[in-house]
Structure formats: C-alpha cells, structure tokens
C-alpha cells in the first residue's frame, strides 16, 4: 500500500529510491517467510536443511571470528585479478575478431564451442598446469569470463554500422586510432552484456575452482562445511556469494551502463 501511495509517487528522488529498494527486497522477504514456515512444519533436521535463525547464527559466528572476511577477501582478490585479466585480453581479442571478417569466420565457431566449456571444465587441466592454489583459481575465473567477453565484443564490433566507420575514416581517423575512437565505444553496449554474462560465469568458476584447488575462499568454505554437515554455514556462504554478485552488478556494471550506453541512447537489446 505504502509503495503506491500518492506521496511515494510524488515524492522526491529519495522516496522513489526507497520504494524501488523495497520492491527489490520483497521477493526475498517472501522467500524467507516460506523457508521459515516449511522448516517449522516439516521439522526437517539441520543436517539436511537449516532454519533461517541457524543461518543467521552461523553468519554472526563467521563475522565475529573474522573468518567471513578472510574467505570473502581471498575470493574477491581472485575474482578481481581474473576479471582484470579477462578484460585486458578478451576485449582486445574480441575487437580484433570483429574488425576482420576472415579472422571472425575462423575463430567464431571455436569461440562458441569454448563458451560452453569455459571455466569449470578446465579445472583438471588448470590444476595440472598450475598446481593446486591461487594461480589455478585465477586462471579458471579468467577462462570462464574470457570467451563470453570476447564473443560479445566481437558481436558489438560487427554491429557498428558501416556508415559510422566510413564517417570516421573520411574525417581522417588513422587506422590505429579507429580502435579507441570508434570500435571500442561502438561495441560498448555488447561489451557491457559480455561483462555481465562473463562475471556470472566467473563467479561460478571461482566457487567450483575453490572447492578443488584452494585452502581459503567462499567455495572452499562451503565444501569444508559440507564435511561437517554444517548446512547453516553452507547457506550463509551461498547468500554471501549472491549478495557479492548483486553488489558487483549494482555498484559497478549498472553505473557504468548508465554513464555510457544509456547516456548515449544506444542501450543494447538484451537477449
């Protein structure tokens, strides 16, 4: 009721933001309510599924012991390094693919093939090559993201209208500067899509790789808790992962999109 009240609609930016936030939280609140009721009614054991209060307790424990920050910190560090590596390699490679029809024709099938295999399927090889540890996990994050980012960047470059490239050339743009002046900004709507999709793959790859190849991190923690039937800890970390993803999306990708492609009126139609 309060959400659609005239005051809310007429109100300033703050109240509009507040109502947007409430709408965003509503499904989670409902989910939590269903959770509480089902666990209460079925009296399921905690080794199968925890009550919400158990999870909150586990979370409090992890917080006060500092374990939460150790593991989240370790995971974030790997994600950041893997994502930076993917951006530095995937975007230039995608632009290269997009700017030559022949190179694209050669690599596009391989790329599409690799998107399906990206990340998790590479864990055995990554650990063989790089050993169990930091480097293998970062490799997996990079690998999971790279193909999706390169592929979307390629699509973005291919979708730049020919006339735009011609306009730039006929205004004296040197070939080397076409990259930064036209191809990169022109492909940005699809690059943002590639970042979104790729980051999702990256996080999943991270969790899987940490289960196998790490001694710290959110994926490792989930796996360890499973050995002790600590479903409360498992769920607590799952929620942490989801929240971290939401924060990356809201705090990094959404503002980037608002300041660029939305401002320029060239938002990509998301598939």
């Amino acid at each position: 009721m309060a959400l659609t009240s005239p005051a809310g609609r007429r109100g300033g930016k703050l109240s509009r933001r507040l109502s947007a936030a409430l709408w965003f939280l509503l499904p989670f609140v409902l989910l939590a309510a269903v959770w509480v009721v089902i666990v209460e009614v079925t009296e399921v054991e905690m080794r199968i599924f925890p009550q919400i209060t158990d999870v909150a307790g586990a979370f409090g424990e992890l917080w006060s012991s500092g374990e939460l920050f150790t593991h989240v910190g370790a995971s974030l560090r790997r994600v950041v390094l893997g994502v930076i590596a993917a951006i530095l390699t995937g975007i230039p490679f995608g632009i290269l693919l997009g700017s030559s029809r022949w190179v694209a024709a050669f690599f596009a099938p391989l790329l599409r093939f690799s998107v399906a295999l990206a990340g998790i399927a590479w864990i055995p090889l990554a650990t063989l090559w790089l050993g169990y540890g930091e480097r293998a996990v970062i490799f997996i994050v990079w690998n999971a993201m790279f193909f999706a980012l390169a592929y979307n960047t390629m699509l973005g470059v291919q979708r730049i209208p020919t006339q735009l490239l011609r306009a730039a050339r006929s205004m004296g743009t040197p070939r080397a500067r076409m990259f930064t002046e036209v191809l990169l900004p022109g492909a940005l709507p699809n690059i943002v899509t590639g970042l979104r999709v790729g980051l999702g793959y990256g996080w999943r790859g991270l969790v899987a790789a940490e289960i196998i190849a790490a001694s710290a991190g959110v994926g490792y923690s989930i796996f360890l808790a499973q050995k002790f039937f600590r479903t409360d800890v498992i769920i607590a970390f799952m929620i942490v992962i989801g929240v971290l993803w939401l924060i990356t999306d809201r705090a990094v990708l959404a503002p980037l999109e608002r300041r660029t492609v939305e401002r320029w009126g060239m938002k990509a139609v998301t598939a």
């Binding site: 209208p161 306009a167 205004m171 320029w264």
Partner: peptide
C-alpha cells in the same frame, strides 16, 4: 577516404558516444 572529401550520410552516421561539440570537432581532433 580523406577529410578533403567529407561525406554527409543519409543515415547521419553521427557518433552516439560524442556530444554535439565532440562530433563537430572530431575531424579537427583527428
């Protein structure tokens, strides 16, 4: 292609990521 032979296109072909001023100054900047 050369700036000696500038082209006005049917589809306008303006750079969406550049402001009006940025579009006009583009050739000079290049």
């Amino acid at each position: 292609p050369s700036p000696e032979r500038g082209v006005v296109f049917q589809s306008f072909a303006l750079f969406p990521w550049k402001t009006v001023l940025g579009n006009v100054a583009f050739g000079l900047r290049m």
